[in-house]
Nucleic acid binder design. Structure first.
Length: 564
RNA sequence: CGGGGUAUAGCGUAGCCCGGCUAGCGCGCCUGGUUUGGGACCAGGAGGUCGCAGGUUCGAAUCCUGCUACCCCGACCA
């Protein structure tokens, strides 16, 4: 493709609205443009990337026997009413104003609709049906550019099986296909077991990629692959040891000391010698939670331990319940249920609040002084702590969900009457699975994982072009001539090449654009090297530069691409 | 939906508190010339309902009211 005739509107400055790197670079590189909040147009270069990602997905889906469909985005609302999901989606579903149609946010109902008409016998299964299409969700807050939009491209596949054993097979095939897809596009990903949420069903896994633009916080172990949402993740830590001798309880004046750090500084003690207090309201009753030092309470774990919803007590409530403000609350004299984190189980000689402002208490022995105390795992795992599976250090970071595979079971087939006859002649609901991949997220995550200050660094599998040919000074006859010749040679050799043949752009300008656009290989044709019958290659990823002879250039380049 | 912020030329911005604007600057764009290996230089030029509507005032980009759009944090998220 000739750049002089292409629409690639690059931007030198960072657009005001863009924050996350992938968004900034796609905008600056002329890959996408926003139309409205969460609605983007893919420009020619961006669409090439979309097509490449889709093609990889398509190949891997076809490889496990998937059959591609093209399904309507415009759906009669009544189909969605059969499964109660008009209500379940609520405001997230787009409704048309002048007809009882909705815009499909996913396609389980449509697949089930077709399945119930034609899949009538156990002999018709298994089936894997998929589509790569635009879906619509009225997100309350679109964000991070292309990562969370109101309109987005999604590969969704649906498996139809006669029983759960069949579903397990389909599910595992998808699991394997997904690993291949994400590996092929060059992403560093990991897999988290997840709850299946509003989709219903029994088992599911999320395919995640670490990113600062992520919406979930996860704990992940590089060594063994353990991964869990931080809400449920556990970790191996050093518990606080009970000392052999318990001191007596004593009150200490601690004026204006509020935080654990201040307390430790004031008393010259270690945070492990302290018990931090948090008061939660559970079923209208106050519960005191004690954590070691600055350990964070994990509210999901707390809710699990208590079996019902919790909320932190308001400041006014704290005063009424304990007689003190946050910062001076503790177990001694607390009237109510007290639960401590396992890390400080049966500890002694601890410091905590006195339930009196500006006072703390030392020498607390949970066994002696707080006989009614209970213990539970309540802490939030932190980076560097031991993996619960293998003990190696865990990483805790935010991540983006790229793909999600579910075992749906018979939720939709039962609701919509999609049944088949077994070998014995019994009527049974089809057992289904549902498997999604966010196409834009694959692209955004690739950029999030692979860029530098200058721009994008595409993995060759999804780069819009493999080679960016830069004719440095196209006003010089030898350069223009050689560049043209090379361009044609590469095209004939089947190399995907973007040719910067602009005559009015200076060398520096072309270099900057090339780095921003991020093709894996830059082929630089300049006057000086040309005099020696050579051109220069720059590997975008490493910055490495090579001089290669004109003789046999196309073959050399193909070789280089191969090795990337 | 709750909280915060922003809206001035294609992009990035100054001016707004403290009204006097004929709205300034950089990039980009057009013309001519020079330049040509890391976002060139000189000269000339075009481009603005200052988000929209109303109000206050002799006078509003600037003050007030309402609305809209976009961004961020949170809630939500197949």
């Amino acid at each position: 493709m000739r750049q002089s005739k292409s629409f690639i509107p690059t931007l030198k400055e960072v657009p005001n609205d863009a924050v996350v790197p992938s968004h900034v670079l796609m905008l600056r590189g002329g890959y996408v443009r926003a139309l409205a909040a969460g609605i983007y147009s893919f420009l020619p270069l961006g669409y090439r990337v979309v097509k490449k990602v889709c093609e990889i997905i398509r190949q891997e889906m076809d490889a496990i026997g998937g059959q591609e469909f093209h399904l309507p985005a415009l759906n009669p609302k009544e189909i969605w009413e059969e499964t109660g999901r008009v209500q379940a989606f609520g405001d997230t579903m787009f409704h048309l104003k002048n007809r009882d149609y909705v815009l499909a946010p996913t396609h389980e109902e449509i697949i089930t609709f077709h399945a119930r008409k034609v899949v009538k016998s156990y002999k018709d299964m298994p089936q894997t049906w998929y589509q790569i299409q635009t879906k619509f969700r009225n997100e309350a807050r679109p964000r991070s550019g292309i990562i969370r939009g109101r309109q987005f491209l999604m590969k969704d596949s649906y498996s139809l099986d006669i029983d759960t054993a069949g579903l397990d097979v389909s599910y595992n095939l998808h699991d394997q296909a997904y690993r291949k897809i994400f590996t092929r596009v060059g992403l560093k990903f990991f897999v988290v077991g997840a709850s299946s949420g509003a989709m219903g069903g029994s088992g599911s896994e999320e395919f995640m990629v670490g990113s600062a633009a992520g919406e979930d916080t996860v704990a992940h172990c590089e060594a063994c692959g353990y991964a869990a949402n931080v809400e449920v993740a556990s970790s191996v830590i050093q518990p606080v040891q009970r000392e052999t001798e318990s001191k007596a309880v004593y009150e200490i004046s601690t004026p204006n000391i509020k935080s654990i750090d201040e307390l430790c500084g004031f008393l010259n003690i270690n945070e492990r010698q302290t018990a931090k207090s948090r008061v939660y309201i559970v079923d209208d009753k106050a519960v005191l939670i004690l954590m070691s030092g600055n350990d964070d309470v994990n509210e999901t774990k707390l809710e699990k331990a208590l079996g019902s919803g919790v909320r932190p007590a308001h400041p006014e409530e704290l005063k009424a319940i304990t007689g003190a403000d946050a910062g001076s609350i503790g177990p001694i004299g607390f009237n109510g249920r007290i639960i401590a984190d396992l890390r400080i189980k049966e500890c002694n000689n601890l410091f905590s609040g006195a339930n009196k402002n500006d006072y703390h208490i030392g020498g607390i022995d949970f066994v002696r002084d707080v006989p009614s105390i209970e213990y539970a795992d309540l802490r939030t795992a932190v980076s560097g702590e031991g993996c619960p599976k293998c003990g190696e250090p865990l990483g805790v970071f935010t991540a983006i969900e790229l793909g999600h595979i579910f075992k749906l079971g018979t939720k939709y087939s039962s609701a919509m009457g999609a049944t088949y006859l077994t070998e014995e002649g019994d009527e049974k609901p089809i057992v289904m699975g549902s498997y999604g991949i966010g196409v834009e997220r694959v692209i955004a995550c690739s950029i999030e994982q692979s860029h530098d200050e200058s721009g994008i660094i595409w993995n060759k599998s999804i780069a819009p072009f493999h080679v960016h040919l830069l004719g440095l000074n196209m006003k010089k006859e030898p350069v223009a001539e050689a560049s043209e010749k090379i361009y044609n040679e590469l095209l004939s050799a089947g190399v995907e090449v973007l040719f910067d043949d602009r005559i009015d752009a200076q060398a520096g300008f072309k270099f900057k654009d090339a780095d921003l656009l991020g093709m894996p290989i830059q082929l630089i044709v300049g006057e000086k090297k040309l005099a020696e019958s050579k051109v220069e290659v720059k590997i975008r990823k490493t910055g490495e530069r090579l001089e290669i002879p004109l003789e046999g250039l196309a073959a050399t380049i193909k070789d280089l691409i191969e090795k990337l």
